[in-house]
């Protein structure tokens, strides 16, 4: 007898596969983008089922939300792009066969995987600079990864900017009504409040810089779409410095700890929690501004 919970998981998994197929087989690009957004939302549900609430928050906001917005923003131009000829039937058959082979190999590996012993990490967790295990891994045990990740994010913004021909602020949404404006006015303070809450909460529960940064980015994108505020250009004034703040702060902390204790990003005893909070604050600003920059470089006014 299958338990109802397992039945739900089976259905969820099957709908993921079905949506993946629908996304690839969609007739129009618009349909493909919308299917992919729905796919991302169901992925977020799967993360909850797998006890990964941090990932669920990030997936719903970044994987489904931001990626969806970026894809939809690129749609108009992409539809006009000239594409190469469709691959022939033999190419398709070969691709299908190799995909099937890959699935069989992966499935065999997953099924025959021997059970793993408990992690040594569990013993180290009480010593970490953050109570929440995922935050402890992100900003203490593997802080190097997070430093390099913020570098990747900044690099993506620089690359996107350097590919743009004109420097111009983004366009508002094509249908931009008073209803949207009043919603944005209503939501803006809530967004800032919940970003702060998520940031503070990250130390001891699911949440943190990623989620807080994305909530702030969403607020900024809504502000640009609703045309409420005079559009701002992140390439001018102090904005680039603010965009870099998370990365610069991270490098400063790495150098400081290197000078203090001899190991980069090895926090001094007692000072870890404060440093982690400081790094998260900088990361939140960098993530939020980078996402806004990536969004606006896709809809610059000079593009038309």
């Amino acid at each position: 007898m299958i338990s109802p919970v397992l039945l739900f998981d089976l259905l969820l998994g099957l709908s993921l596969l079905w949506l993946a197929w629908r996304t690839l087989a969609a007739h129009t690009l618009f349909e493909a983008c919308v299917s992919f957004i729905v796919f991302g939302l169901l992925m977020a549900l799967s993360w909850v089922r797998l006890d990964a609430p941090d990932v669920a928050l990030a997936e719903a906001a970044v994987g489904a939300g931001l990626t969806g917005v970026l894809l939809l923003g690129a749609l108009e131009r992409a539809e006009r792009a000239r594409v190469e000829a469709a691959p022939g039937p033999w190419w398709r058959r070969g691709a299908g066969l190799s995909a099937l082979l890959l699935f069989l190999l992966l499935a065999a590996a997953l099924i025959t995987l021997p059970p793993r012993p408990p992690l040594p990490l569990q013993e180290a967790l009480p010593l970490a600079a953050a109570e929440h295990p995922v935050t402890a891994v992100l900003l203490d045990f593997r802080a190097w990864d997070t430093l390099l990740e913020s570098a990747v994010l900044v690099l993506a913004v620089v690359a996107a900017w350097s590919l743009e021909r004109s420097v111009s602020p983004p366009r508002p949404a094509p249908v931009c009504s008073e209803v949207l404006r009043s919603l944005v006015r209503l939501l803006l303070p809530f967004s800032i409040l919940s970003a702060g809450y998520l940031l503070w909460r990250g130390g001891h529960a699911p949440g943190g810089a990623f989620q807080a940064g994305t909530v702030l980015a969403a607020a900024g994108i809504l502000l640009l779409l609703s045309d409420l505020r005079r559009p701002f250009d992140l390439r001018r004034g102090y904005w680039p410095l603010a965009l870099l703040s998370g990365l610069l702060l991270f490098i400063a902390v790495a150098l400081g700890t290197l000078g203090y204790g001899g190991t980069a990003l090895d926090y001094p005893p007692g000072g870890g929690a404060a440093l982690v909070l400081l790094l998260e604050l900088g990361l939140t600003v960098t993530i939020a501004l980078a996402f806004i920059a990536l969004f606006s470089s896709g809809r610059s006014r000079g593009d038309e």
Binding site: L70, L138, E149, A156, F291
Partner: peptide, 9 residues
């Protein structure tokens, strides 16, 4: 979490 941010970049 890191992967999601890198993927969107």
């Amino acid at each position: 979490l890191t992967g999601i941010v890198v993927a969107v970049s």
